[in-house]
């Protein structure tokens, strides 16, 4: 059958146009705007060239934000990937029996991030919080802490919450990959006398390499973009200790009214997500070349 190209174009064009209008065009515009200095109060733009980026490199808060984003990436990968894999393998083995468990682990994702942030803020509260109360009841008074109020602990505390919220989602993704592995391959491994542990390392994991890499990319990009939980729980504080690129960008634009500077931070975020994607494409490419 011959396809009439007109129909195809009519089907694709509305989606492509909406996408270009709301995402592609503003994206390019952000990069352009990062070369200017202006504010919402005084909307006259003055050309600054790379000046905003030069200022960024001198800015200690940006350095803290970058460090925190790096910590987010590392800890999220190190905690969520293995835990999600454990859950997926454990639950995937007998779907019917574990439907309840699957629902349980996925459910935090359904709770709005703002709600999650509010719950855990009360949980972590240094004076009346449920966490410190629990620790005291266990007789471990010296382990109580200021949690979100402690500059050293604020970021790890919020990352813990993020792991609680997203591990179930990553479990779902890995579960989808797990179910695509044909049953016969496991049969063969069983006949060869491979135990559960060896089957996992030598059969399951190599076959899932691709989807694990996709998931790792999602976690990495998610950690570069992270905003909601931090905004709700600490607002980037205390004294910028838990600041990340997204919170700093938001603060620069809509509290400090430094629009050009904020556009430069947004451009840095964009560059980092692109970098992560390129690294991932390289890794999968090498994977396929190796066969």
């Amino acid at each position: 059958m011959r396809d009439r190209p007109l129909t195809a174009w009519l089907m694709v064009l509305p989606a492509a146009a909406v996408f270009a209008f709301y995402i592609t065009y503003p994206l390019v515009h952000t990069v352009v705007l990062s070369a200017y200095s202006w504010s919402a109060l005084n909307p006259v733009r003055t050309w600054k060239g790379l000046g905003n980026y030069a200022d960024l490199m001198q800015d200690p808060v940006l350095l803290t934000a970058l460090k925190n984003n790096a910590l987010w990436i590392l800890l999220s990968l190190a905690i969520q990937l293995p835990l999600a894999m454990l859950l997926a393998v454990g639950i995937g083995s007998s779907l019917r029996r574990h439907r309840v468990l699957r629902t349980v682990f996925f459910s935090p994702l359904i709770v709005p991030a703002v709600a999650v942030g509010l719950i855990w803020t009360l949980f972590y509260d240094p004076n009346f919080g449920a966490l410190n109360a629990l620790i005291e009841q266990l007789g471990l008074e010296n382990l109580t802490a200021g949690w979100l109020g402690d500059p050293q602990l604020a970021t790890p505390c919020i990352i813990t919450v993020s792991c609680w919220r997203y591990t179930g989602f990553h479990m779902m993704i890995l579960l989808a990959g797990l179910q695509a592995i044909p049953e016969e391959i496991y049969e063969a491994a069983r006949i060869d006398g491979a135990g559960a542990w060896r089957t996992f390392w030598h059969v399951t994991l190599p076959l899932m390499k691709r989807i694990v890499l996709v998931d790792a990319l999602l976690i990495t990009v998610g950690s570069v973009k992270i905003f909601d939980l931090i905004w709700v729980m600490t607002g980037g504080g205390p004294n910028h200790a838990s600041e990340v690129l997204a919170t700093y960008m938001y603060r620069s634009a809509f509290s400090d009214d430094r629009m050009g500077y904020a556009a430069a931070i947004a451009t840095v975020m964009l560059a980092l997500t692109m970098l992560a994607t390129i690294i991932y494409v390289r890794l999968t490419g090498r994977e396929e070349a190796a066969g």
Partner: peptide, 16 residues
């Protein structure tokens, strides 16, 4: 072109 949107942070389009 449309798939690139999976990776783009909301903050990158906020100001425009």
């Amino acid at each position: 072109f449309i798939l690139t949107g999976l990776l783009i942070p909301a903050h990158a389009v906020l100001i425009p």
